[in-house]
Design a protein around this nucleic acid. Structure first.
Length: 275
DNA sequence: AGTGTATCCTGCAGGC
DNA sequence: TGCCTGCAGGATACAC
């Protein structure tokens, strides 16, 4: 569910309420959210202080004093909620200093909370691709990486080891805005198309952050508020509706186990230069 | 290396 | 109303 813009919105909302707080107690209601025994997780984080809340790709990263990193992947329906937001499916409850609380809530429980050493986290982080909003993600980098890929460009964008943070919504939206069919092979994407994709990825993600993410059904930020980018979607979930640019019907195809949405007029299956 | 498939899990919408 | 199917912002393991 949550992709880069949603996770970024969550992280921004958590900084003020969490940074500097101590974790006094942990209540594990759903042990399958963890990769270790609930008791060792609880005793491991209890007594720690939350120094800083950041994001890496789709992961929420809580740096704990003294030597722990709490990495939260929200899966499809995970939420990190502060007091005031309603929790319907609480999985882990953290009681914090100052009488505050943090609840990890997750209907489907695809999410994972992991307690890692800084070293383990660094090793993990190294396996992830660059963040598309960081300066390191250049058009040159994208062109070089894509040219080596024979997989469909939409699948490539979803691979967190290639680029970190893009999910199915923004992959489809960026490809539409760049005029690239989602099933095109990475290496078939022309230089001009790569430039357009690089630009559209960054604009779509920035604009979605500005709208505080996309809420279709489950996504909520730390205070329980939905995001407003849903109104800006051009192809995702718009099967059968007219393209806002050319009027042709938006189509849905399934590959790589995920739905892909595209406009047959604006995103021809082969590049326009090589008919 | 890449891809199709299945799996984890719950809830909701739509068809009959 | 109830039952069934399909679908969902993710990630991973497997066989080919």
């Amino acid at each position: 569910m949550p992709e880069l813009p949603e996770v970024e919105t969550i992280v921004r909302g958590l900084k003020e309420p969490l940074e500097g707080k101590a974790i006094l107690g942990v209540e594990v209601l759903q042990p399958d959210l963890l990769r270790e025994a609930p008791e060792s997780f609880a005793t491991g984080v209890e007594g720690s202080r939350i120094l800083v809340v950041t994001r890496r790709g789709k992961n929420v990263v809580l740096t704990l004093n003294p030597d722990d990193v709490l990495v939260v992947n929200l899966g499809m329906t995970g939420r990190l909620l502060v007091p005031g937001a309603e929790s319907t499916h609480p999985g882990i409850r953290f009681s914090l200093s100052g009488g505050s609380r943090l609840v990890y809530d997750d209907v489907r429980r695809f999410g994972v909370l992991e307690r890692l050493t800084p070293r383990q986290w660094a090793d993990r982080s190294r396996t992830l691709g660059p963040d598309p909003l960081e300066p390191g993600f250049t058009a040159r980098h994208l062109e070089a990486a894509l040219s080596r890929s024979r997989s469909p460009v939409r699948s490539w964008l979803l691979d967190q080891h290639k680029v970190a943070g893009i999910g199915n919504i923004y992959a489809n939206e960026a490809l539409y805005r760049a005029g690239i069919h989602p099933a095109r092979r990475g290496a078939s994407v022309t230089r001009d198309e790569v430039l357009a994709l690089h630009r559209s990825l960054r604009t779509v993600l920035r604009s979605a952050i500005h709208r505080r993410g996309t809420t279709l059904r489950d996504y909520r930020d730390a205070t329980g508020e939905p995001g407003a980018f849903s109104n800006e979607l051009r192809v995702y979930g718009r099967t059968g509706l007219p393209c806002r640019r050319c009027g042709m019907m938006i189509r849905r195809v399934v590959f790589g186990n995920r739905s892909a949405f595209f406009c047959p007029g604006c995103q021809p299956p082969t590049s326009p230069e090589t008919p």
